[in-house]
Amino acid sequence: MPARATDARRAAVLGSPIAHSLSPVLHRAAYDALGLTGWSYDRFEVDEAGLPGFLAGLGPEWAGLSLTMPLKRAVIPLLDEVSETAAAVDAVNTVVFTEDGRRLGDNTDIPGMAAALREHGIGQVGSAAILGAGATASSALAALARICTGEVVVYVRSADRAAEMRRWGERLDVEVRTADWSAAREALDFPLVIATTPAGATDGLAAAVPERPATLFDVLYEPWPTLLAARWSMACGAVVGGLDLLVHQAVLQVERMTGRAPAPLDVMRRAGEKALAER
């Protein structure tokens, strides 16, 4: 049921660490634009050990939760239902509470990635490269399952991570080949490069950006731009940033939690840009 403006409802983002999260800025901007004056959105420092107790203490006023690391997998056993999208990568970043108290888990990172790419004109690619093999990389692989018609090459630092990404490929029905991080410069020649690594990890690749790069999707939003993204832009390549992903996945969260659609994408993006500029 769509939310009424005067309903006193709560939502929040959980994780550890959580102080850096932009989610409150984005969701509150959406509530203001939608006229949901009774809604609030907060952040809470919660780790895996504290998650069961936190969920148990929530009252009927709670509409939903956004989850970041390290809770995306830890929450799954605590849910009543998990969407096919979230189950595909064993990662839940969104929990919606129903009127009868059920906990529904979903993943908006995957469709959020696809939406961010579509916004930049990327609806389909013949091949792609992923830099890194962490939790975000599996979501990237799931997004590529929707738009990539050929091979995905994943550049990793360890044999264990390589094996894990190949298993994800089999599960998602994506043709995955893995390569050692030492060969990561090769990734920059692909029509789509998705960088899922921590800050600074791709700085060493910036000098290798080709003369005519295609599209880079760098999931970081702070610091921004990364050195790789800056060099990519200087070479006139297309760049999709972490704020694009954050906003698109937050739009889907707002719609699921409030029942109001469409969520105000442009308003949320401007709020995120303003918050980052003020940091």
Rank of each mutant, 00 (worst) to 15 (best):
G204P: 11
D32M: 00
A261P: 11
A263H: 06
H248G: 04
L228I: 06
D106V: 04
W181R: 15
F217M: 15
I18M: 05
D90M: 12
L14S: 07
R279D: 12
D109E: 06
A29C: 10
T136C: 13
S182P: 01
G169I: 05
V152D: 10
I122V: 15
R10G: 09
L276C: 02
T202W: 04
E211Y: 00
G59V: 09
T94A: 14
T178K: 08
T94P: 05
A91S: 15
F44V: 09
P213H: 03
W168T: 10
V89K: 02
I76D: 10
W62L: 09
L26W: 04
R270Y: 01
P70N: 05
G105F: 05
L67W: 02
G35I: 04
A263R: 01
D218E: 15
M234Y: 03
P262W: 13
D90H: 14
A88D: 09
R9W: 02
R279S: 14
Y155M: 08
S233H: 10
V153Y: 03
L71R: 02
V25S: 04
G15H: 03
A12K: 08
L172C: 13
E151P: 10
V239L: 12
G59W: 01
G200W: 00
A86L: 11
L172Q: 12
K274I: 03
D189S: 11
S158E: 06
M257Y: 02
V267P: 02
T202Y: 04
E222N: 15
R185V: 09
D218H: 05
Y221P: 10
G241D: 15
L220Q: 14
A49K: 11
A261R: 15
W224R: 10
V96W: 00
A195L: 04
S138A: 15
E278R: 06
G237K: 02
I76H: 09
E211P: 03
P225M: 02
A49Y: 03
Q249R: 09
P60Y: 01
R171G: 14
L245R: 00
E255H: 08
T196P: 06
L245Q: 07
D42I: 03
A179F: 05
V174C: 15
G259D: 11
V209A: 06
L141V: 08
T149W: 01
D218R: 06
S21A: 10
A135W: 04
G200H: 09
A183W: 01
A74E: 08
R167W: 08
I147H: 07
P191V: 03
A201K: 11
D7L: 06
P225Y: 02
W224A: 14
V25A: 11
L131H: 07
T196S: 13
C236H: 15
R9D: 08
S139G: 14
P77E: 06
G105H: 09
